[in-house]
Design a binder for these strands. Structure first.
Length: 608
RNA sequence: GCCACCGUAGCUCAAUCGGCAGAGCAAUCGCUUCGUAAGCGAUAGGUUAUGGGUUCGAUUCCCAUCGGUGGCUCCA
């Protein structure tokens, strides 16, 4: 899906980039392929109502209102027909027409009529998004198919490579993305310049399937979801827990070095707390029904902030105390509609690496800079190098406080991004109800973007809870508050990590760092000795003492993506050595225990 | 939540038109003791997601519920 993007303050104008993108060959190929597909669909279902069909990242789609659900066989047939149309080399002809004429042309196409309405009035584009100027109405025609469209397209259908087009799948999609409007059938397709590019794209999809954290979660015995426990609730197995624990321990240590203090808070709180915080006003649809405890209503927490605020309020604070940074691996519960749940990436109960920063207004810019840098430091430690930031601004529909109140913090976040020099885009109206925020997305090894860190300014809670500190002047002042999670949630982060590394965690994170493989039973005693000394040195090792052949043990360790396989037989036992095989398949040969340990410690320290 | 598809042994998947539910891997028990990706044999494993209906007969057809997959909407 193409993201709606706004111009950034710094240099690069996104609108221009978008324009350039529209002129690109792939854009025109995909846009044209969408028209050709619509033609094929109309031939199959003359009564079909057509909606919109834009190019998207990696392909295109078109939405239809059809008399019956499409089947995979339909897709094959449509694809064959598309190839025929392509071979016809029909020219695409653009025509600018009046709204009158457009209405006549699309008289039996209600969705098109609605689009024409929007174009005519100006101010609304085909996605229902506001645009500045009133556009002219144009149609593109090829063969016997005419579509309301602003273009651009290829010159004729022959410029599309019939071997580089493929229809992928059918999905439901609301007309104009509005769940109150009709559900249409969306056909997704992909199109490229060459058959080679198509093949590469399909390979990438296959690779993504191979790395799917749900699949690896089962194969590597990391986590599971039990139908009996409930959807969206994660059970962490010992190996997954080990990875998560190491990640958490590392982050805790960094937080302590970074000036944070750890706190623990409960999982439920009284209704009055959530009333004061504003969650019952703004966030109730994501909260679970209250529990009744001796006639009082308690809610399961969807966020940790009100609790941290209470800790702040537990004593009179001086300006000398600030900034205060309270951190907690806080487990929260949020209602998510069943259809959105997805492995570890979208769940109903999750643990945030949460923290709340309380500071004086004059400390604010510095505090934001600091947390931004800290966030990048943590993400880099886990092997992420590519970042993209999003500045989310006030949503007039869903915002506490006045626009004037929002202005300074929004500007502070923007300036912090400028100073940090990471690329960012502005997401208009995407903020939470309590303040503007910066979201940081990382790119994984397949180039996919994942949202992890979030840094959210919060000017409402200090007011709602009447937070104060005593200033130099002896008077009470209102502190600023920043809400932040760096890995985001441990569940989502683990999911991203699994996919990023395809389950082959770097040594420092690997749940089992080395498997010791005795060649025959008589080598088990020596294997145990090796195990003992490596454990002594802090390594996570196991002996595979099953009555299996060495080959089978290597294969199993390999499939479990264990970083080191240490083969021990007569030669090693005599020399006090281990024969080291890496999961890459590389054979390092026999190393003394000391030499192996040095190597392992090196890999661990460098996060390799 | 909505649209489409799906749910058979721990996992991956078979089972013709509605006619006795099967294989590989994993597990268990033996045998085997092996030098860089699967040694051999035997055993066990099922209310075909759950509940209801149609039928002489349902894994197969229908309905409901639960769960999953791909999207939409929403989101850490």
């Amino acid at each position: 899906m193409l993201r709606r993007i706004s111009p950034t303050a710094g240099g690069v104008r996104m609108a221009e980039q978008e324009k350039k993108h529209e002129q690109s060959e792939l854009y025109r190929i995909r846009h044209s392929a969408a028209h050709i597909m619509a033609q094929a669909v109309l031939e199959m279902f003359p009564e079909a109502k057509i909606a919109i069909g834009p190019p998207i990242e990696d392909g295109f789609y078109y939405d239809f209102d059809l008399p019956r659900p499409l089947t995979p066989e339909d897709l094959e047939q449509l694809e064959r027909r598309m190839r025929e149309i392509i071979k016809g080399k029909h020219p695409f002809v653009r025509r600018v027409i009046s709204a009158e004429e457009a209405r006549r042309l699309f008289a039996d196409q209600p969705y098109k009529l609605e689009l024409i309405e929007g174009l005519e009035q100006g101010g609304i584009d085909e996605h229902g998004e506001p645009v500045d100027e009133k556009p002219e109405i144009s149609v593109y025609e090829h063969a016997d198919f005419v579509d309301l469209c602003r273009g651009p397209h290829v010159e004729d259908t022959g410029q599309i490579n019939p071997d580089a087009v493929k229809l992928m799948n059918v999905a439901g999609a609301y007309w104009r993305g509005d769940e109150k409007r009709p559900m249409l059938q969306r056909i997704y397709g992909t199109a490229w310049r060459t058959a080679d590019e198509l093949e590469q794209y399909l390979w990438k999809l296959e690779e993504a399937r191979r790395r799917d954290h749900r699949r690896l979660g089962r194969e590597l015995d990391l986590f599971s979801v039990s139908e009996e426990v409930g959807a969206g609730l994660i059970l962490w197995h010992p190996k997954g827990s080990m990875v998560r624990k190491i990640a958490e321990d590392f982050c805790r240590a960094e937080h302590e070095k970074g000036g944070y203090e750890f706190v623990y808070t409960p999982h439920i709180g009284k209704a009055t707390l959530w009333e004061t915080s504003g969650h019952l006003d703004w966030y109730q649809e994501n909260m679970y029904a209250p529990l009744d405890i001796e006639g009082q209503q308690y809610y399961l927490k969807p966020m940790n902030c009100p609790f941290h605020v209470q800790i702040y309020k537990s004593q009179k604070r001086s300006y000398r105390d600030l900034p205060l940074r309270f951190a907690e691996w806080g487990t929260v519960y949020r209602y998510e509609r069943s259809g959105v749940l997805h492995g570890l990436l979208r769940v109903r109960g999750f643990t945030q690496d949460d923290a709340h920063l309380f500071c004086r207004p004059d400390q604010m810019p510095q505090e934001i800079d600091r947390v931004l840098q800290f966030s990048l430091h943590i993400l880099r430690a886990f092997g992420f190098e590519d970042f993209q930031a999003y500045l989310a601004t006030r949503n007039p529909e869903k915002a506490a406080g006045s626009p004037e109140q929002w202005e300074p913090p929004t500007e502070a976040l923007r300036q912090a991004l400028e100073r940090a020099g990471i690329p960012y885009q502005v997401d208009e109206g995407e903020a939470t109800f309590y303040g503007p925020k910066i979201d940081i997305k990382v790119k994984d090894s397949l180039g996919r973007e994942w949202q992890l860190s979030t840094i959210q300014f919060d000017f409402t809670l200090p007011e709602r809870f009447d937070l104060s500190y005593v200033g130099e002047d002896g008077k009470d002042h209102r502190p600023y508050m920043i809400h932040r999670a760096l890995l985001g949630s441990m569940e989502r982060f683990m999911g991203v990590l699994i996919e990023h590394f395809a389950g082959a965690f770097p040594v420092w994170l690997a749940p089992v760092q080395a498997v010791i493989i005795p060649i025959a039973d008589r080598h088990v005693a020596y294997a145990r000795q090796v195990e003992a000394s490596l454990k002594q040195a802090g390594l996570r090792v196991r002996v595979d003492d099953r009555s299996e052949r060495m080959n089978a043990k290597i294969r199993d360790a390999q499939l479990q993506k264990v970083p080191y396989m240490l083969i021990v037989g007569n030669r090693e036992a005599e020399a006090g050595a281990v024969a080291v095989r890496l999961r890459s398949g590389e054979d390092l040969g026999a190393l003394s225990l000391e030499a192996f340990l040095a190597r392992a410690k090196d890999d661990i320290a460098s996060h390799a």
